[in-house]
C-alpha cells in the first residue's frame, strides 16, 4: 500500500504507469487550502470570578519569529456583554472581526428589544463561532485560530473555547496557545474547581491575570510587553483597558537559563 496521501484515489502507478499531468494541464497536487498561519497572535488567557470574567491578550502580531506588528488588538468586543479573544492567524482573526461586526448590525435590524432582551448574548456568539469553525475545518479550510468567548449572561460568568479543529470546551480558567501550558497552572492555583469562582473577587482575579501575563512575557518568545485586558462585570458592564504593560519585572532568573544559543552548558 502506498501511504502517500497524494497518491490516494487515483489509478496506481504499478498498474497504469505514471500519470502524465501535462495531458489535462493538471496540478501535481490535490487542491490545497491554508497549511499554516502567517502573521500570528500568541496566547489569550481568561478566568471567571464571582461577578464576571476577565480576559487578556498581548498586542503582538508575529511573522514567524520576527516581532512584526506591535499594535494588534486581539480582544474584540461584541455588544455590551461579550469579548471574543483570538489567537492564531491575524488575517483570519480580521475576517472573524468583520463577521462579528456584521452579526451585530444584523441583530439590530428591526429588533425592538435589541438593547436588552434580544441583545446578542455570549452563548449566541459562541454557538455561531463554533459552528463556523467546525464548518470550515470540515471543508478542510480552517480559520487558523483558537478563540475564547468571554462574557456575562443571565448575571452569570460565561467562558468557552473553540479552535481551528472545531473542538470546544469550557472551564473556569481558559487559555490558548502557550498560555494553556504556562498560565493555566497559575490560574488554577486560584480557581481549581467551579466552587472556587464564588470566593474569587475581581481584585484577586485581575492580579492573577496580570501575574500570568508577566510569566508569559518572560517565557514566550513570541509575546510582547504591551497588552490589553477586558473585564465584563455583571454590575460595571464592560471595562476595556488598552495599552497596558507588564510591570515590576525581574530578569535575574535569565542568567541561570542554560541550553540555548551558542553558550556551552
Amino acid at each position: 500500500m502506498n501511504h502517500d496521501p497524494f497518491s490516494w484515489g487515483r489509478p496506481s502507478d504499478e498498474t497504469y504507469g505514471t500519470y502524465n499531468n501535462t495531458i489535462a494541464s493538471a496540478s501535481p497536487f490535490p487542491k490545497m487550502n491554508t497549511q499554516q498561519p502567517i502573521i500570528t497572535g500568541t496566547s489569550v488567557i481568561s478566568m471567571k470570578y464571582n461577578n464576571g470574567v476577565i480576559i487578556a491578550a498581548d498586542n503582538l502580531g508575529a511573522y514567524g519569529s520576527l516581532l512584526r506588528f506591535n499594535d494588534v488588538e486581539r480582544l474584540i468586543p461584541v455588544g455590551k456583554r461579550t469579548i471574543v479573544g483570538v489567537s492564531g492567524d491575524v488575517s483570519d482573526m480580521q475576517h472573524i472581526e468583520q463577521i462579528l461586526s456584521d452579526l451585530e448590525i444584523e441583530n439590530n435590524y428591526d429588533n425592538s428589544y435589541a438593547d436588552d432582551e434580544e441583545t446578542l448574548k455570549p452563548s449566541y456568539i459562541f454557538e455561531y463561532l463554533s459552528t463556523l469553525m467546525y464548518q470550515r475545518r470540515s471543508k478542510m479550510n480552517p480559520l487558523w485560530n483558537a478563540i475564547i468567548v468571554a462574557g456575562v449572561e443571565d448575571d452569570k460568568p460565561f467562558l468557552k473555547y473553540v479552535n481551528l479543529l472545531g473542538v470546544t470546551y469550557s472551564s473556569p480558567t481558559l487559555a490558548t496557545g502557550f498560555g494553556a501550558h504556562l498560565a493555566i497552572p497559575l490560574l488554577r492555583r486560584v480557581i481549581d474547581r467551579e466552587e472556587d469562582i464564588e470566593s474569587t473577587n475581581l481584585e484577586l482575579a485581575e492580579k492573577t491575570i496580570l501575574e500570568s501575563m508577566k510569566v508569559l512575557y518572560y517565557r514566550d518568545a513570541h509575546s510582547s510587553r504591551k497588552f490589553s485586558l477586558a473585564i465584563i462585570d455583571k454590575e460595571q458592564g464592560l471595562v476595556f483597558k488598552k495599552g497596558l504593560q507588564v510591570e515590576n519585572m525581574s530578569w535575574k532568573f535569565a542568567k541561570d537559563i542554560k541550553g540555548y544559543g551558542t553558550q556551552k552548558v
Partner: peptide
C-alpha cells in the same frame, strides 16, 4: 437554534 443556540424571536418570525 442550531447556529445561534437562540430561540427565534416572535418579532423576527413575523418579519
Amino acid at each position: 437554534k442550531l447556529v445561534f443556540n437562540r430561540k427565534l424571536s416572535v418579532e423576527k418570525a413575523g418579519h
